[in-house]
Nucleic acid binder design. Structure first.
Lengths: 268, 268
DNA sequence: CGGTCTTTTGAACGCGGTCAACAGCCGTGG
DNA sequence: CCACGGCTGTTGACCGCGTTCAAAAGACCG
C-alpha cells in the first residue's frame, strides 16, 4: 500500500484514486527526518474548512493554532489511544485513516467509526472520563492533538467555540444513530451499499471523487462495522461487480452505478 | 395497564414492581384537575439525584428551577417532538416512559433509546439543529422542559454546568456505542438477555428492583430496538421462561437467574 | 523466495425472518 | 350482560439469508 504521511496526504489520496498528481515531488517527504519537517500552520492547512476552527477569525486562528501545535504520527496498526487510558486531548486526523472500536470482555470487536482526514476522534472523552474505545491507525497517519483543558480555556475568549463543540458532539451522535439504523433495519446488501455510498460522500466533501476511492480498511473491519462476517462483505462486493454496480480490485473501488446502489437501500 | 401520571409516578413504579407503596393515597391525583396540581420544586423532586442539577448548590438550584418550570404531560402514543421540528428545549422524564426512534424514508422504524424517569431526551439537538428523531410517550408521561437558550445562559453563572452537559452528551454517546455493540456483535438470545439485564440495572439505579419490573414497551418496540422481529423477542422470552431464567406474564418480567442471563451474553 | 496475512469462493448448516393461525385482552356499544 | 372488532402477544411451519468451515489463490514483507 502506498500510504504517504503528512504533507503528501492530498496527493496520496488523489493518486490512489487514480486522479491528477498535485505535488509529485512531495513523495520525498517520506524520507524526511521527523524533526526536520516544517510545521504546518492552521491557516495553510488543507483541511481548514473541515477542522474545528472552520469559521474562526484570523485572531482566533492564532490562538487556536497554539493549542494544536502537537502532532502525532502513527504507523499502520498503531494505537492512538486505548480503552481505559486517561483522556486529555481530542485529535483531528490530518492524513491517513483510522478506526474506533469497542472490544467486549469476551474479545469480540465492534468497529464504531472510521476516521478520515478532517475527522475528529476522542470526542467521547470530552467530559474527562477515560477513553471507552480504542483508536487505531489503519495506515500511516498524522493527527493534531488538541488538549481539552486548553480548548475549554479558549472557549472563554472565542464564544462560538462552545457552540461549535456542541455541534461536533451532535454530529457524532447523529452519525452513530445512522449506524444504528444501518445495523438494526438493513439487510447485508443494503448495508454494504450504504457503506460504499457514505464513504463516497465523505470523500466528496473533502474534494475527492465520490465514485472512485480506495478502501483503507480490511474486509474484516468493514464487516465488523456493518455487523457482518468478512466473507459476506467479500461476496457482496463480488456480486455487485457481476451486477455491474461497481468494479472492485482488492482495495480499490469504482462505483459505476450509484443510482443502482441507492435503489438497493430503498431510496430513489 | 395501570399507568398513573404525574405525582403518583414513584408509587406507580413501585406497585408495578411489587414493592412497598410509598404514597398510596397519591393515587387520587389521577382525579385532580390539571391546573390544580401543585408545582413540585426541584428540591423536593424524587429524581433530584438523577437530574441535570444533581450536584448543584442551593443557590444554583434556585436558578435552575426557574428554567425547568414548564412541565408537559403526554398521553400514551403521543409525540413529544418529531423529526424535523425546531428544537428549543431538552426534556427530563419525570414520570412515565418514552422511546426515541428514527424513521427511514422507506418507513422502517429504528428505536434508538428508551427513556425512563430521570432520563434526558432532546440532547441530540443541543446545537440548535432541528430534531433528528421522534420522541413518543409509551404511557402517560410527564416531562420537565428546559430551554436550551436559558440553560446556556445559566452556564455563565454555574461553571460546572458546562461540564455536566458534556458529561450528559458523553453518556448519550456511550449508550449508543453500547447499542452498536449489541446490534453488531450479539446473537438474538444475547440481545434479549442483555436488554433485560440493562433495563433491570436502570431500574435499580432509580431505587427499584432490578429483577422484577414491567416492560412498558411493546414487543415490536423491543424488537426494533434490538434489531429483531417481534416474533423472535416473544419466542426468546418464552424460551427463557421454560429454561427457568425468568418468568414472563404479558408485560411483567421476573428475572429468576440473572447469573444465567449474564452467562448467555458471555460474561461470568 | 518462503511465511504470513488477506481475500475469494464453495458447500452446508442453522438462526432468525416470514407468513399464518390463534389466543388473550380491552374498550365500545348493542 | 355478552358480542364485536381491533390490537397485542404467542406459537407453529417453512424458507432463505448470512454464517461457518474449509481450501486455495493473492498480496505483502522480511
Amino acid at each position: 500500500m502506498n500510504a504517504v504521511p503528512g504533507l503528501a496526504a492530498p496527493s496520496a489520496q488523489l493518486r490512489s484514486a487514480a486522479h491528477v498528481v498535485l505535488f509529485p515531488t512531495l513523495d520525498r517527504s517520506r524520507a524526511l527526518p521527523r524533526a526536520a519537517r516544517p510545521q504546518i500552520s492552521c491557516n495553510a492547512c488543507a483541511l481548514r474548512g473541515a477542522c474545528i476552527s472552520a469559521d474562526f477569525s484570523a485572531a482566533e486562528m492564532g490562538a487556536f493554532e497554539e493549542l494544536a501545535q502537537v502532532k502525532r504520527r502513527l504507523r499502520g496498526a498503531q494505537h492512538l489511544y486505548r480503552t481505559g487510558e486517561p483522556a486529555e486531548s481530542l485529535y483531528v486526523v490530518r492524513s491517513g485513516f483510522m478506526k474506533s472500536s469497542v472490544v467486549t470482555s469476551d474479545g469480540r470487536e465492534q468497529v464504531t467509526r472510521f476516521h478520515m482526514m478532517g475527522d475528529l476522534t476522542g470526542l467521547g472523552a470530552m467530559a474527562g472520563q477515560p477513553h471507552t474505545t480504542d483508536a487505531v491507525a489503519l495506515e500511516d497517519t498524522e493527527v493534531c492533538e488538541i488538549p481539552f483543558a486548553a480548548l475549554q480555556r479558549l472557549t472563554l475568549r472565542v464564544p462560538q467555540l462552545q457552540h461549535r463543540l456542541y455541534c461536533l458532539m451532535t454530529q457524532e451522535l447523529q452519525a452513530q444513530r445512522e449506524a444504528l439504523v444501518l445495523l438494526g433495519t438493513m439487510r447485508a446488501e443494503e448495508r454494504v451499499a450504504a457503506f460504499l455510498l457514505d464513504l463516497g460522500q465523505r470523500y466528496r466533501t473533502l474534494g475527492f471523487s465520490a465514485s472512485r476511492f480506495v478502501l483503507r480498511m480490511s474486509r474484516a473491519d468493514i464487516g465488523s462495522y456493518l455487523g457482518l462476517r468478512l466473507e459476506t462483505v467479500s461476496r457482496l462486493l463480488s456480486r455487485f461487480q457481476v451486477e455491474g454496480l461497481l468494479s472492485v480490485e482488492g482495495k480499490s473501488v469504482h462505483i459505476l452505478d450509484s443510482e443502482g446502489l441507492l435503489a438497493l437501500i430503498g431510496q430513489s
